[in-house]
């Protein structure tokens, strides 16, 4: 799909976009995302992550070409990010690898420059990121990847145990009357708790809400380390989960800011912006050296 940049980006940032045709590729553990910027439009595509990073990249390129008519040789610069970035390759097209932490911060800054904190929950880890509202740079960050608990993969597992789809898990949790008390921080033990609660006829809604609250507490712990400053944005694949969003807001005692662009693309968008910035600074360097 495509949108006009001026319709979704922070108006304070619009004039900073250049004419360069750039793409940000965010190869996550569950999905690959790409955002292309061309002629003031943002083209965003998504696909499930394939076994090999390159397959995901090729699929994303094909989707982008179908949407925008832009092919690989027309791309001026690309940034690869996400866990699959290490194997990212675009043949002769100029590219750079940047971590998803830097990309998410920049993406958030362009979506709304008042954002100072990001909750990013992806398939295999959860991150808390502090953003400099002056320039979109990372001030501090922390990652939780000790185990699968608190990640998108964990929520998928819980949905499976409750006989729900991942999409429905959040919706169902909104119907909870009394969220179940999930004590375990470990995915294996939490799984046992879910089974045990189900055996006691606890409702799927209460169990789902309890799981979301347990995960939300982990998010709060991350911010205890680096500080939480509003505005706050929820990015990453789990941002689509309304139950998780509600739980994190409840535990943090803060509302997430609404952005006009699907938050799952924040990293890819940040990558595309950084691609433009890289080109701009290299042109500046060349001009200085002439």
């Amino acid at each position: 799909m495509s949108v006009l940049a001026k319709e979704v980006l922070d108006p304070r940032r619009i004039n900073e976009l250049t004419d360069d045709v750039v793409v940000g590729f965010d190869i996550g553990s569950r999905t690959g995302k790409a955002v292309l910027i061309k002629d003031g439009r943002l083209y965003s595509v998504i696909t499930p992550t394939a076994v090999f990073t390159q397959q995901t990249v090729e699929k994303l390129l094909a989707l982008l070409a179908a949407d925008s008519g832009v092919f690989l040789d027309q791309i001026d610069f690309a940034i690869g990010t996400g866990y699959g970035r290490v194997a990212f390759d675009l043949k002769d097209t100029r590219k750079k690898i940047i971590t998803e932490i830097t990309c998410h911060a920049m993406g958030a800054y362009y979506l709304n420059s008042d954002i100072q904190s990001i909750v990013d929950i992806g398939g295999q880890d959860a991150k808390a990121i502090r953003v400099d509202p002056k320039n979109g740079h990372v001030i501090d960050f922390i990652m939780n990847d000790k185990c699968a608990a608190g990640t998108g993969r964990f929520l998928e597992k819980v949905a499976e145990l409750l006989g729900l789809t991942t999409e429905d898990l959040g919706l169902v949790s909104l119907q909870a009357t009394e969220p179940a008390d999930i004590s375990s921080q470990c995915v294996v033990f939490a799984e046992s708790e879910v089974i045990s609660l189900s055996a006691k006829s606890e409702s799927p809604a209460n169990i789902a809400a309890g799981i979301h609250l347990a995960n939300a507490r982990r998010v709060k712990n991350l911010f205890n380390r680096i500080g939480l400053v509003p505005e706050i944005m929820f990015s990453g694949g789990v941002a689509h989960n309304v139950g998780m969003k509600k739980a994190v807001e409840q535990v943090l005692g803060q509302k997430f800011i609404d952005v006009k662009f699907d938050a799952i693309y924040t990293g890819a968008l940040g990558g595309a912006i950084l691609a433009q910035q890289t080109l701009t600074s290299s042109k500046l360097d060349m001009a200085i050296n002439i």
Binding site: Y83, E100, I101, D125
Partner: peptide
């Protein structure tokens, strides 16, 4: 993920 932390830190 350890490498992500290191790289993100240096980028920061």
């Amino acid at each position: 993920q350890l490498l992500t932390r290191v790289k993100a830190f240096v980028e920061m």
